[in-house]
Simulated assay, not measured.
Amino acid sequence: MKRIDAVIRPSQVDGVKESLNDLGITGATIFEARGFGRQKGHTETYRGSEYTVDVLPKLYISIVVNDELLEPALEAIIESARTGVIGDGKIFVSSVDEVIRIRTGERGPTAI
């Protein structure tokens, strides 16, 4: 099993959720995040004062998939989240040793 953590633009989340759902991936943990990277932020003006916004809002999506769904899930996220502009985000993949569904006690891939 693999865990996919994707940091994406908030505007792209609906497309990513839909693409994952089309693959049969029906669960994800999504939370708001803020970060910085090569995008470097932008300058805004508020009441005549100029300031730099360099920590930008993002969404962090975490899913666990069976090994055979890894590549299709990665492609779905990439295609749905890509705008072609700096700041599209990152994807991290790591191994998962065990999954346990608390309600039923199921373990392993059936617990996903």
Rank of each mutant, 00 (worst) to 15 (best):
M1D: 06
Q39E: 15
P72A: 01
K40V: 06
K2V: 08
G41C: 06
Q39L: 08
V93H: 00
Y51A: 07
I4M: 02
I100W: 06
N21D: 05
E98W: 03
D22H: 09
P72W: 08
D22I: 03
A28D: 03
I4Q: 01
Y60S: 12
F36G: 09
S19I: 00
F92W: 08
D88N: 02
A33T: 06
K58R: 14
G84A: 04
E106D: 15
G87Q: 03
E98G: 11
V53F: 05
I30P: 00
D67I: 01
I4V: 04
I30G: 08
G48K: 00
V16G: 02
E32A: 14
I63P: 09
T26I: 14
E50C: 00
V53N: 05
P72L: 02
S94I: 06
A76S: 12
N66D: 15
T110L: 00
Q12C: 06
F92C: 07
I100C: 07
S80W: 01
R107V: 00
Q39N: 11
V53E: 01
L56N: 02
D97I: 13
G41P: 03
V99N: 09
G27D: 04
F36K: 14
D14F: 11
A76E: 05
A73Y: 02
E79M: 06
E44T: 15
V96W: 07
G27A: 12
K2W: 09
R101E: 14
Y51N: 00
A81Q: 00
G35V: 09
S80R: 04
G37Q: 00
V55N: 09
N66S: 14
L59C: 02
Y46S: 10
P109A: 08
Y60T: 04
L23Q: 04
L20R: 03
S80A: 15
N21T: 05
V99Y: 10
V93F: 02
V99L: 10
T83S: 07
E71M: 13
V65F: 08
E98S: 14
K40H: 12
T83K: 10
I8M: 12
K17Q: 13
L56I: 11
K90H: 04
E79C: 07
L56S: 06
L70V: 06
F92Q: 05
R107N: 11
G84Q: 06
G24K: 03
A28G: 03
G15I: 08
G24A: 00
T45V: 09
D88E: 10
G15H: 13
A6S: 07
D14H: 13
R47H: 07
R34A: 11
I4G: 04
A73V: 07
G89V: 04
F92L: 10
S94E: 14
A73C: 09
E79D: 15
I30R: 04
I78G: 05
D54H: 03
F92K: 05
I61C: 08
I78T: 08
